[in-house]
Simulated scan of single mutants.
Amino acid sequence: MDISKNYFEFIGLPVSYHLDRSELSDRSRDLQKTLHPDRYAHLSDHEQRVAVQYMAYLNEAVATLKSPLLRAQYLLQLQGIDTTNESSTPMDPMFLMQQMELRERLEEVASASEPFEELEELNEEVASMLDRLRTTFVEHYEANDLSAATSDVRKMQFLEKLVLEIERLEDKLED
Rank of each mutant, 00 (worst) to 15 (best):
K5I: 02
E9M: 03
P14F: 01
Y17F: 15
L19S: 07
D20H: 09
R21Q: 12
S28A: 14
L31T: 02
Q32E: 13
Q32M: 14
Q32K: 13
T34H: 07
H36E: 10
D38C: 05
Y40K: 06
Y40T: 09
H42D: 15
L43W: 00
S44M: 00
S44H: 00
S44I: 00
H46W: 08
V50H: 02
V50C: 04
A51H: 01
V52I: 15
M55N: 03
E60V: 03
T64W: 00
T64H: 02
K66E: 14
K66T: 05
S67A: 07
L69Y: 01
A72F: 04
Q73C: 09
Y74V: 02
T83W: 12
T84Y: 05
N85Q: 14
E86N: 08
S87C: 06
M91Q: 03
D92A: 02
D92F: 10
P93L: 05
M94G: 01
L96G: 09
L102H: 10
E104Q: 13
L106W: 00
E107Q: 13
E107P: 05
S113F: 08
S113C: 07
P115C: 05
E117I: 15
E121C: 05
A127R: 14
L130T: 02
R134N: 07
T135K: 07
T136M: 12
T136D: 12
F137A: 00
F137P: 00
E139Y: 08
A143Q: 09
D145S: 04
L146M: 14
D152K: 00
V153G: 03
K155I: 01
M156W: 01
L159F: 03
L159A: 06
K161L: 11
K161I: 04
L164S: 12
E165K: 10
I166Y: 02
D171Q: 13
L173V: 10
L173F: 11
E174M: 13
D175L: 14
